[in-house]
């Protein structure tokens, strides 16, 4: 459950204050697969970072599973993120000195937990990286790295998965595989997924598409909606 009310975020560049989010209201049900689309610079990544507690908003409220995020200390936000959230970053963000295996179990390790070999194995199979456990990130292809990042975001079975352009730099085949993977986990574990993407081919995977423009939600469409596709097409043009 994610509940966002009147969320704003300003950035200061020098003396200038740049408003990036200008009052976002958003509610995402548990288990929903939501996609956020919008032009470049509209504030999608900023919103995702705020949802993940990686940054603090200028004003407004964010509730994650009933807990107000903005009033938490940095430490508590870390704890919440560690327990409830998985993050997939646009450019993998793997830790170069850790092996594939160590990268994947990192969130568990940060939480002071032991990884059960069974779970890791299953995940490795799912992302088709069995046999690559002891490689270092620089010994992997881009797609493999992306899959490690996804495995890493899921190892601790988070209830919320935040994915920022998880298919950003991938070709059609690879991005399809990644999306299938996400869909599979979503289907099996019913976590809430918030995915930022530019890619129509990814958007079709979501139950709901939120359209972002200039720091506000311009519109949103549900899969069930009659004019779903037409509306989107209009919007994208």
């Amino acid at each position: 459950m994610i509940n966002v009310v009147s969320l704003t975020k300003d950035y200061k560049t020098g003396k200038e204050v740049v408003p990036v989010l200008k009052g976002v209201d958003l509610s995402i049900k548990a288990g929903e697969f939501v996609c956020i689309m919008g032009p470049s610079g509209s504030g999608k990544t900023t919103l995702l970072h705020l949802l993940g507690g990686l940054d603090t908003p200028t004003s407004g409220s964010i509730q994650i599973n009933g807990k107000e995020l903005t009033s938490q200390s940095e430490k508590n936000r870390t704890l919440l993120r560690r327990k409830e959230m998985g993050f997939v970053f646009q450019n993998y963000q793997l830790l170069p000195t850790l092996t594939v295996y160590e990268n994947i179990i990192f969130p568990l390790h940060a939480d002071g937990k032991k990884a059960s070999p069974g779970d890791v194995d299953e995940l490795l199979n799912a992302v088709e990286l069995k046999g690559y456990e002891n490689r270092f990130p620089h010994e992997l292809s881009g797609g493999q790295q992306q899959r490690v990042a996804i495995a890493r975001s899921l190892i601790h079975q988070p209830s919320i998965l935040l994915a920022d352009e998880p298919t950003g730099n991938l070709d059609r085949k690879r991005s399809g595989d990644i999306l299938d993977l996400l869909a599979k986990f979503h289907y099996e574990q019913k976590q809430t997924i918030v995915m930022v993407t530019h890619d129509m081919f990814a958007a079709g995977y979501a139950d709901r598409i939120i359209l972002f423009k200039d720091g506000v939600i311009e519109a949103e469409v549900k899969r069930e909606d009659e004019d779903y596709a037409r509306f989107l097409a209009r919007f994208m043009a």
Binding site: G204, Y205, R223, Y228, L232
Partner: peptide, 11 residues
Amino acid sequence: LKDILHLTHLR
């Protein structure tokens, strides 16, 4: 676009 969305969902 509509077809794309439809087909990706199908996919």
